[in-house]
């Protein structure tokens, strides 16, 4: 009972609820869920989940990052181009990852050390990263050995798939990091920068680290995405940044910083993924799909924000308490 209450009071609860409900809806629509369907859902949506993690950590320290989608495009282009030049898949992928991390560090330096507003900085860097991607590969195309896709879809122990492992790896890195003093300090920074500085916290360092980690998640997302589509496109990640922010908000992460966690963001991104596949599966005319998706997104965000509203929560609690007393 107490445990149940604890889950309900968590900030990610609304997103969990949404995820479960829409998962059920999808189950009904597909007449039951097959394992292969769930697998393909995971395969296609891992990049979005990675980005949601990345953007969430930047929001937690009171910032944001809208350049992650462009980094994904860049990683995709880099991997495909290197593979086309004859480098092995592993090396191409690792260099792609390195590029992403460098992009993250650059964001971190401009935001943390130069102290420029995070939204504007990442807008500017997103033009830079997208520009580089477009410069390297002006038109979509190129291909990579199918072994890459095979590795991505393959299971390590028969069941666990590569994308799940990669996600778990990212979660582990972050979960480990917040258990060090860094974690509490990051949350403190998200609450109030001036107070954090006065408490002797290395504000700049934390910002750089956080954006570096966000770059890493974008790198992983880029690898996953490239393995899924097996070709290159300089604008493939363009719309991903905004969805990842929406996912974080649905997952109960406060855009003011200091509240929420990556677990909620993963749930939020999961909800958005299921939402997309439901809209596709529901046989709406292809023209109405993005409109309907947008409307549901709007409702989802409003619902999760209202659910996190303390005043409203108290009111609802009051109703329940009164009802309980009567019965």
């Amino acid at each position: 009972m107490i445990k149940g209450k604890k889950v309900v009071s968590q900030s990610f609860f609304p997103s969990l609820l949404l995820l479960v409900i829409f998962f059920a809806i999808m189950g009904v629509m597909n007449h039951g869920l097959t394992l292969s369907f769930v697998k393909s859902l995971i395969l296609t949506n891992t990049p979005a989940l990675c980005l949601a993690i990345g953007v969430t950590v930047t929001i937690l320290v009171g910032g944001t990052d809208i350049s992650l989608g462009s980094i994904v495009s860049l990683v995709n282009v880099v991997i495909i181009t290197l593979a086309g030049l004859g480098y092995s898949i592993t090396i191409s992928a690792l260099i792609g990852l390195l590029v992403a991390v460098i992009c993250g560090v650059f964001n971190g330096i401009v935001i943390g050390i130069m102290r420029v507003n995070p939204l504007l900085t990442t807008f500017a860097t997103s033009t830079i990263y997208a520009g580089i991607a477009l410069w390297i590969l002006p038109n979509p195309g190129g291909s990579i050995d199918y072994a890459f896709a095979k590795w991505y879809m393959g299971g390590l122990f028969g069941f666990i798939m590569t994308p799940v492992m990669l996600l778990i790896l990212l979660v582990f890195i972050w979960a480990g990091a917040i258990r060090t003093p860094f974690g509490l300090k990051a949350y403190a920074l998200g609450c109030n920068e001036k107070k954090a500085y006065a408490s002797g916290i290395n504000v700049n360092g934390i910002r750089v680290l956080v954006h570096t980690f966000a770059g890493l998640t974008a790198g992983v997302a880029g690898i996953c995405l490239t393995a899924t589509i097996c070709s290159g496109s300089p604008t493939v990640g363009a719309t991903m940044s905004l969805n990842s922010i929406a996912a974080a908000v649905i997952g109960g992460v406060s855009l003011n910083g200091g509240k929420g966690g990556i677990f909620g963001a993963i749930l939020g991104a999961g909800f958005l993924s299921i939402l997309s596949s439901i809209v596709v599966a529901a046989n709406f005319s292809s023209y109405s799909q993005s409109f309907i998706k947008g409307l549901i997104l709007l409702i989802g965000v409003i619902a999760s924000i209202l659910a996190g509203d303390k005043v409203l929560k108290d009111k609802i609690k009051g109703i329940f308490c009164k009802g309980g007393a009567k019965s």
Binding site: Y187, A188, C191
Partner: peptide
């Protein structure tokens, strides 16, 4: 130094 404006984090 301890002062009223510069210290506690409300989310912790």
């Amino acid at each position: 130094m301890t002062s009223q404006e510069l210290s506690l984090f409300k989310n912790l």
